[in-house]
Simulated assay, not measured.
Amino acid sequence: MRCAIHQPQFMPWLGYLNKIALADVFVFLDHVQFKKNEYQNRNRIRTPGGWMWLTVPVRFHFGDPIHDVQPAAGEPWRRKVLTAISTSYGKAPYYREYRDSLHELIDRPWRDLAQLNEATVRWLCDAFGLETAFETASALPQTRREPTRRLIDLCRHLGCDTYLSGKDGPHYMDTGAFDEEGLDLHLQHFEHPAYPQVVAGAEQEFEPCMSALDLLFNAGPERGRELIVGSGTAKPYRKEAAYESAGHRGSS
C-alpha cells in the first residue's frame, strides 16, 4: 500500500492532487513548521493579466507548526478570496456549479490554517472524484523527529509498505533509511497538462501551475479528473537510480 505525505496547502495545484491520486492513503503533515511565502496560505489563480496570489492572511510566530497558525482575525480575507475567484472565473463553464459550496467552505469559522487547508484539499478531491483515504499527522501516534524517520513511522503506523515522494525528494531525504527499514521508495513524475482557460469570458494563452480551482472551473470534474490522474506516474526510486548509474558508466 502506497502512502504520500505532504504539508496541507491552500487550494493546491494539480501536481499535489496527482500525488494524492497516486496514493492509497495521503497524510496531511500539519505538525511541522509553517513556512511563510510558500503555498501553505496562498496559491495562484488565472486573471486577465496573467496570474495573482489568492492569499489567506495569518497570525503566527516563527517556528509555529501549521496547525497552530490562525487566519488573521478582523481582516476581510474571505470576501477578498471569493471576489477574486468570482472576478476571474465568473464566466468559466463550471464556476456556477461549484460557487455555492465554495462560498460555504470559505465562510466556515476556521480554527486554524491546517484545518482550512485540509478542507480545501478534500473539497477539490470530492469535486474531481478522487477517492484516496486521508489522515492527519497530528492525530496519529508520535513519530521520531528526524524528518525521514518521521515519514517512515507514519507509513508504518498506517500499514503502508511504500512511500511516495516528489521527484526532488532524494535531494533532501535520507533515501537509505527506507532500505534499512524495509520500505519501498517511489518518486512521482508529473507533467503539467494543458487545457482551455476562460478568463473573464475569453480564452487566452495557457498559464500553468494554477490552483486546481482553475482546472475545475474550466474543464469540469470528469475531464479534470482524467487530466489529474493521467499526468503523473509513480516509479521505484532504486530502479531509476540503477538505470541512471548504468547510463553514466556507459558514457564515461
Rank of each mutant, 00 (worst) to 15 (best):
Y94E: 00
E75W: 07
L216I: 05
L216D: 04
W123A: 05
D174Y: 05
P109Q: 05
Y163E: 03
S165C: 03
T136V: 11
D184K: 15
A92S: 13
R145D: 06
N117T: 03
S86L: 09
T132E: 04
I85D: 06
A114H: 09
L187H: 06
G169R: 13
C160N: 03
G169E: 00
G201K: 14
E205H: 14
E146T: 08
L116H: 04
S138E: 03
Y94H: 15
M173R: 15
L158M: 07
R145W: 01
T132H: 12
A92Q: 06
P170S: 08
P147T: 00
P93L: 05
R96N: 10
V199R: 15
E203A: 15
R145H: 09
L102N: 08
N218P: 04
I106L: 11
F190Q: 12
A137M: 06
D184T: 15
I152K: 10
D214Q: 13
A133F: 02
L187N: 04
F128H: 07
H186T: 07
P193K: 14
V198H: 15
D179P: 01
R96L: 09
W77C: 09
A137F: 02
E118W: 03
M210P: 01
W77D: 06
I152V: 08
G182V: 10
A139H: 14
F134K: 13
H189V: 06
R78W: 00
A202K: 15
F217I: 01
D161Q: 11
D168T: 13
K80E: 03
L216S: 09
A127D: 01
A219T: 12
W123S: 06
T83V: 08
W77V: 04
A92F: 06
F217L: 10
A200L: 00
P193S: 13
G182S: 11
L102I: 03
A219E: 12
H192T: 14
D214G: 12
Y89V: 00
L140I: 07
A177E: 12
Y95T: 00
N117Y: 03
R99E: 12
E203C: 14
A133G: 12
C209M: 11
Q142A: 14
V198E: 12
A127S: 10
Q115P: 02
F190N: 11
H103I: 04
I85V: 13
